[in-house]
Nucleic acid binder design. Sequence first.
DNA 1: TCAAAAGTGTTTAGTTTACACCCATGC
DNA 2: GCATGGGTGTAAACTAAACACTTTTGA
Lengths: 245, 245
Amino acid sequence: MAYSYEHPRPSVTVDCVVFGLGDSYDLRVLLIERALDPYQGFWALPGGFVRLEEGLEAAARRELHEETGVRDVFIEQLYTFGALDRDPRGRVISVAYYALVNLSEHPVKASSDARHAEWFKIEELPELAFDHKEILKKAIERLRAKVLYKPIGFELLPEKFTLTDLQKLYETILGQKLNRRNFRSKILKMDLLEELEKQTNVAHRPALLYKFNKEKYEELSLREGEFIFEIRFQPRDGRDENEEE
Amino acid sequence: MAYSYEHPRPSVTVDCVVFGLGDSYDLRVLLIERALDPYQGFWALPGGFVRLEEGLEAAARRELHEETGVRDVFIEQLYTFGALDRDPRGRVISVAYYALVNLSEHPVKASSDARHAEWFKIEELPELAFDHKEILKKAIERLRAKVLYKPIGFELLPEKFTLTDLQKLYETILGQKLNRRNFRSKILKMDLLEELEKQTNVAHRPALLYKFNKEKYEELSLREGEFIFEIRFQPRDGRDENEEE
DNA sequence: TCAAAAGTGTTTAGTTTACACCCATGC
DNA sequence: GCATGGGTGTAAACTAAACACTTTTGA
């Protein structure tokens, strides 16, 4: 079956930059190995063609689920890439999304549909297909910028987390050591974390677990101007409590 | 001539939200009156179909120029709109851009190509075609947010401006009165304005004219973390120097 | 009892806010 | 000479930064 139009049309795809946090709080991105022709064997962002009967975000979620098994996650539009030569098959415009997931709840899927998905550390990326390196770069920039003024970082953590988890997350994303005491007081002063029970089975003083109170945040941010989420610290020199002496 | 594809494809358009500042520092947007069928006679954002041989931003600039005569302006991608029913002609995905221009240098064009373009105050908009109201809403949100941390507001002013011009611009966009002394010191402390000559022919003490030093800003912002452009004030209650008692 | 991370409070420095009067010009 | 907006400095309040020791647990 063929489809005919009076004027030529580009193809439209979606691509997803899925971020997760590794065991050592290193930032990772979920890639798939391309089984088919252009860039066969290369690693690429999960994505594919938009169907006429689905919205853009829906297409991104569908492709993400089909190709990696990941679903029901935080996802947001990133940017639309439309360079003339970005796809050897012709004019393909790609609407990119980025997603944040708790990696431990989305380990590499058991390749159910023959495609191969894997989490890569941001600093150890393979060569990527198409202009996916550029898309990823933009996604990292966006994540770095947005984490400062929107509480999206929590999407990378499990529901219950310690303040140290949260701090390490920020340190990873911002690429900067933060002072523990100042971080804790800044975060707690916003009063958006719900205190839960203590950790168990750790070989040191157990930390309190917290949960992000999304409802409260949303209510507060409606009151324009009165409340501003902001995590920003002066550039620091990484020291803190340097034992002895 | 017809174009045939194996799979159905959406159409792709670009739309431009062009902002300008009116005489009384009111925010305005440039609209065109639709001459053709869907929504004929309605006001709409300038825009149109992307050609296969041009990039997205190039398409936005081309349509903007063709439909309104405006060219060589600050333009940036806003968001891509792809709701299934946003265009009665079928599936049309629109990549929206926003532009900032100095309105006095881009008055309503003399309708050279029969299309009619006009500047509308943001608060006195006509009914718009398609989902253009939604696009415009998103553009205003973006402008409000971005003006706080990027020096894009200058794009709305003539090259030479007074600090009062700049302050009124911020007051318009933020919808908030600012304190004159604090605004001045904050702006001047960033040391990004070049002092020029005095105003002439004003019936009061002439103000100094300034010029935004874009080169300096760009150089400074490369040094990551060291320099941060930021205009943000606590919500205020609009008073200042309330003369006499 | 040791190792390992959690937790905490205060002083200091820096930044932001609030605020009132004189100045330069055109009419 | 008067009306109009331009221009300025400082004290007070607040916020952010720096910093070291004690606590709790499992092994």
